[in-house]
């Protein structure tokens, strides 16, 4: 089992630099997602790890083995790294079995069958890539990458072309399969939901640098900065003023801060829409200091929930996710109630 250690790597194409002194550790057998917008450098990072791009400086290790440094360079064919590119990139001139067998020594037919079984494609070896659906092509691409039993597997936005429900199903299957094999996996994606749902840890990349590496829950609830906060999910940001230790005052009233949240006299506090709830004003007893009063400005209905925009009496507008058909009609008087702590961000 092999982890991957990237240290102080700068890389780019021609004279340009895409990655700047980037460092990242991936544990052995870990499933790490690299999350970034397009142009952030996440695919470049994947290429450096796979050996498809030689960095300008810095080192890359697989376990104890240096695979890239200023003096040493292991080409991709000797790294034992698997690659699942965007949309699969199956060899169109080979059959499904031919694709899977590409990285295997000759005459290993049973292995091909076993690998196809592993990805749920038993008996499809004779088909051509053009005859497969997008999801099936991805399955074959995974089997092909796993065939030579790589130590590390790199997944480059493999499901971006698939429809939403198929995407969810495939990533669950892949997660399970790779966990069973114990292969170290690095998934590059721009889809925060995908990164949060599949990975043990998520590394957020911006402008060629790692902004934060954390477990999904930590990343979501305690993002390192404002950019990350809004990149990994819908963010509600409120001006806050410290009133006492661990408590700030906002337009929604007093809010407790996450334990260990940095203490500052003033700043922005981050809440997630699901932390808020709306209660009809008439349901609250008169004079009760429960929630922040306001009136509904707009509502958009999404089936499983509605996004209700409330104009607070204290000034700002705020978006609240209301489950089910919860119908607060525009104009209605409501209270906005906060559940759970917030975090100060900058």
């Amino acid at each position: 089992m092999t982890g991957v250690a990237v240290k102080d790597v700068s890389a780019g194409y021609g004279a340009g630099t895409v990655l700047a002194d980037l460092s990242l550790d991936v544990g052995s057998g870990e499933f790490l997602a690299v999350l970034g917008a397009s142009g952030s450098g996440k695919t470049t990072l994947l290429k450096v790890i796979a050996g498809l791009l030689r960095p300008q400086s810095g080192t890359v290790r697989f376990g104890d083995r240096i695979v890239s440094s200023p003096d040493e360079w292991v080409p991709p064919e000797r790294r034992r790294v698997g690659l699942v590119p965007q949309e699969g990139a199956l060899f169109p001139h080979l059959t499904v079995a031919g694709n899977v067998a590409f990285g295997l020594p000759r005459g290993t037919g049973e292995d091909v069958d076993r690998l196809l079984g592993l990805v749920g494609m038993t008996g499809m070896g004779g088909l051509r890539p053009q005859e497969l659906s997008g999801g099936q092509q991805q399955r074959v691409a995974l089997a092909r990458a796993l065939a030579p039993a790589p130590e590390v597997i790199c997944l480059d936005e493999p499901w971006s072309a698939l429809d939403a429900s198929l995407r969810v199903r495939l990533r669950g299957e892949v997660r399970e399969l790779l966990a069973g094999l114990g292969t170290t996996a690095i998934l590059v994606t721009h889809d925060q939901e995908e990164a949060l749902s599949i990975a043990d840890r998520v590394a957020v990349v911006r402008d060629g640098r790692i902004v934060q590496v954390d477990a999904p829950e930590v990343l979501y609830s305690r993002p390192a900065d404002l950019g990350t906060a809004s990149f990994v999910g819908e963010a509600i940001l409120l001006d806050a003023r410290a009133v006492r230790d661990g408590v700030v005052s906002t337009a929604l009233g007093e809010i407790h801060l996450v334990t260990g949240s940095p203490q500052r006299p003033a700043g922005l506090v981050l809440l997630r829409p699901e932390q808020l709830a709306i209660v009809a004003e008439h349901a609250v007893g008169p004079g009760e200091p429960h929630g922040a009063p306001g009136s509904v400005a707009a509502r958009s209905y999404h089936g499983h929930d509605s996004l209700v925009t409330v104009r607070l009496d204290a000034g700002p507008e705020i978006a609240v996710r209301a489950p089910g058909g919860a119908g607060a009609a525009p104009g209605e008087r409501v209270r906005v109630v906060v559940g759970g702590p917030g975090v100060l961000v900058e």
Binding site: K47, A50, G51, L52, P75, P76, E77, R78, R79, V81, G82, L83, P85, Q86, A89, F91, F102, G103, A141, R144, A145, A147, P148, P150, C154
Partner: peptide, 16 residues
């Protein structure tokens, strides 16, 4: 031609 094909071939043990 899609350059990913060649990249995949590299990771599957082929020289340039």
């Amino acid at each position: 031609a899609d350059p990913s094909l060649e990249e995949v071939a590299r990771t599957l043990g082929r020289g340039p």
